[in-house]
């Protein structure tokens, strides 16, 4: 180490620590995922059942209560896509092909992505804040000493509830965004809604919808795990909770966008 100037050595030291920290967080997330799945399978036998009631409560919070905002966003995005696509296609005089582009981009990209980002902002942050607060209040310790495994009681319901609801919300966002696009397209091109719907159904293959839903399921796992991991790593009181909550949203959205790109790349080869 003596060959390196002190500043460079300190930089390498910091880089090494940050890398190690990131790897250990990913490892922690993997352990939580594995444990949640394990409790779902063997929980009842080990007296640590994953309660359906808790999963539904999470699903209510993550999914049902997000319906209004998802609806507004999906409708707006649908309209926006239709406006931009028709504007762009006009230059080639190809407006009539607009449904092709809009339907595919809504179902394959926009609906899962916007749903994922909204749920990350609404629920990923909530998981981090809740777990972080519980941790600093010793509530996690209290669960443990009561003989209630915190992973099966807190993490598994959040994970499964999110996994249930993000794809469901994505289906809803698909429908609403396509409807929103349809509003503008039918008006602009003088089509009626039924003809538009027929075109959409003609354009879309099962594969496209599966592509979008598959991604959204991945996003759900990322959102839940990133929220939980950040919550579990909270230290330093209320300020720490705030810091990790912000971090969970930033990380979740970054992870979603990167995963989205990789998923699209791999599945279109």
């Amino acid at each position: 180490m003596s060959a390196l100037p002190a500043r460079a050595s300190a930089f390498l030291d910091r880089l090494g620590r940050a890398t190690l920290g990131a790897v250990s967080e990913i490892g922690f997330a993997a352990v939580l995922l594995a444990e949640s799945l394990m409790w779902a399978v063997v929980g009842r036998r080990r007296r640590q059942p994953v309660r359906l009631g808790l999963i539904f409560a999470e699903a209510m919070e993550v999914g049902v209560k997000a319906v209004p905002i998802v609806t507004i966003m999906a409708l707006t995005i649908g309209l926006m896509l239709a406006i931009q696509s028709i504007y762009a296609l006009k230059t080639f005089g190809a407006e009539s092909r607009v449904v092709f582009g809009v339907a595919l981009s809504v179902v394959r990209e926009f609906a899962p992505l916007i749903t994922g980002i909204l749920v990350a902002g609404r629920s990923g942050s909530a998981f981090a804040a809740r777990l972080g607060t519980m941790r600093i209040n010793q509530e996690i310790d209290a669960l443990t000493v009561m003989g209630i495994n915190p992973v099966r009681f807190l993490v598994a319901p959040a994970l499964f509830g999110t996994l249930l609801m993000v794809p469901a919300l994505t289906v809803w966002a698909d429908l609403v965004a396509l409807f929103g696009a349809g509003l503008y397209i039918t008006l602009e091109l003088g089509m009626d809604m039924a003809a538009y719907a027929d075109q959409v159904i003609e354009v879309l293959a099962v594969n496209d919808i599966a592509h979008g839903l598959g991604k959204s399921a991945l996003f759900a796992v990322l959102i839940a795990l990133i929220g939980v991991v950040n919550g579990a790593l909270v230290s330093g009181g209320a300020e720490g909770v705030g810091r990790m909550t912000t971090r969970s949203v930033v990380h979740a959205i970054t992870a979603i966008v990167i995963t989205d790109m990789v998923f699209a790349f791999v599945l279109t080869r």
């Binding site: 007296r47 640590q48 607060t133 209040n137 010793q138 310790d141 000493v145 003989g147």
Partner: peptide, 22 residues
């Protein structure tokens, strides 16, 4: 495993800040 869960059911803990679930 189960033995640990059963042992914990025979212990009671009152934490400093209460640790009540909010």
């Amino acid at each position: 495993g189960v033995a640990r869960t059963l042992l914990r059911q025979r212990l009671g803990v009152a934490f400093q800040g209460g640790a009540l679930f909010s």
